[in-house]
Design a protein around this nucleic acid. Structure first.
Lengths: 237, 237
DNA sequence: CTTGACAGATTGACAGACAATCTGGACAGT
DNA sequence: ACTGTCCAGATTGTCTGTCAATCTGTCAAG
């Protein structure tokens, strides 16, 4: 199948040989990049044409995203890209704070040299990117930072649960804007996390992680509230 | 379709109208009741005959279970009921402790009268069932207790993440045995949780929940280790 | 302006088919 | 007797086509 070869060459995730996994990945990317917007209906046949695969494959991929909470399937109306209310966003960040707090604590307890090094590396790159105002670099470094932190806690379940949460948070950010103003504050926070982990202070590491998530939550929620308020006034007048 | 009517009457979950959801639910029950054992291969066509539905429906349901971690699909070999190592079991309980600790803390903070009442009711029934040595009643009361606790924290994400964890823990219990000896100790622990929530002591509630999970983890892991050791000696000699 | 019915669109579900891949066992070579 | 190779059956991955059930929007009638 040339279609399959095409897809494989397009994303090349190596150990994602099945079409449904590739479709799921592509859909995730499309949703998280904003190509598919929250609240948008996903018509199966359109997705078929878009991705060049058959309906069963699309449907199986959609079940995976459904379980991750990225799409919401309502019976006989089909899948919709998940939307989120402000209250749910608050819950989302609260859940993330709990899990990432645990991850930080465990990282501090284990102090795996390789993990500490990975986190340090990501931090260094983050600082460099921030200094150069390189937004893409910042995003990449931050992804690596979180990846090391979450992977370093040595708990596959925490890791597995955090991934959908992060996905939905980036989905949330699509709705509002990215916050360039927060970079410096964020930088201080993650540096504090790293120091706490490096020194093996579990309590401090947990608290730093929680504080970091909460600060991010405040910034994001503030922006969302402002955006929705703007929309409200727009629709009102 | 008589098959569909048959299925609907069989489980009657009311708001589970789609076949795939019913199949997913039935598979969950079969796995958690031990009908389908951990490590067992799930041949799609056999499942089709067993449930009286077509292969696409089975496959879509399997994707849902796959995302929950209840089955593990390896490419070109098909789905297998998830197994779990002792180390993973430890991680599983650690993750549960974090989430349920949060749930307890939040219940204590919110102190929703209805939630407190639900938890108290479940506790009363649990005590009665324990006094009567009614294992089934104990299980049901405990399920209600956890349901109220987890639902009472007011965080849909925590709730959503905990369900698969609980499922996998009961799956774990299938592997080993149920522990009748722990009932009294467990009863004291959950009573402590309730008191802490009732009094609004967030710290205490969190600690009680965590301690409870950890105690359950010790008991369960101990039993699993003993069982696997027995199997090892069996296979060794 | 509201209500009702109808048509189009879309999902839910099924059957059947075929290629790709894995597994187990037979067979040959040493 | 042991090991490596190869083949056939079994199973999954995926597609196509089909049909019923349900939703949605439109249009006419009151």
């Amino acid at each position: 199948m040339d279609r399959r070869a095409e897809l494989q060459s397009t994303l090349r995730i190596d150990d994602v040989p099945t079409v449904r996994a590739m479709v799921a990945q592509k859909l995730r990317e499309a949703i998280m990049s904003g190509t598919l917007k929250p609240g948008q209906r996903l018509v199966e046949r359109e997705l078929c044409e878009m991705m060049g695969v058959s309906r069963p494959s699309i449907r199986e991929a959609l079940r995976l995203l459904e379980a991750d909470g990225l799409v919401n399937t309502v019976p006989h109306r089909g899948p919709v890209v998940s939307t989120i209310s402000i209250d749910e966003a608050r819950q989302l960040y609260a859940a993330r704070a709990v899990l990432e707090g645990f991850a930080g604590r465990e990282c501090a307890r284990l102090r795996d040299p390789q993990v500490v090094r990975q986190i340090g590396d990501a931090l260094t790159r983050l600082k460099a990117a921030a200094a150069k105002q390189d937004l893409g670099g910042c995003l990449e470094a931050k992804t690596d930072f979180y990846g090391a932190l979450i992977g370093g806690c040595g708990n596959a379940f925490i890791q597995r649960m955090l991934k959908p949460l992060h996905d939905r948070i980036t989905l949330l950010r699509i709705t509002s804007m990215s916050q360039p103003k927060r970079i410096n504050k964020s930088l201080r926070e993650v540096t504090a996390i790293w120091r706490a982990i490096q020194s093996g202070d579990q309590e401090l590491a947990e608290r730093c992680c929680i504080d970091h998530v909460k600060a991010a939550a405040v910034a994001a929620l503030d922006m969302i509230e402002r955006a929705s308020a703007g929309q409200a006034t727009l629709s009102d007048g």
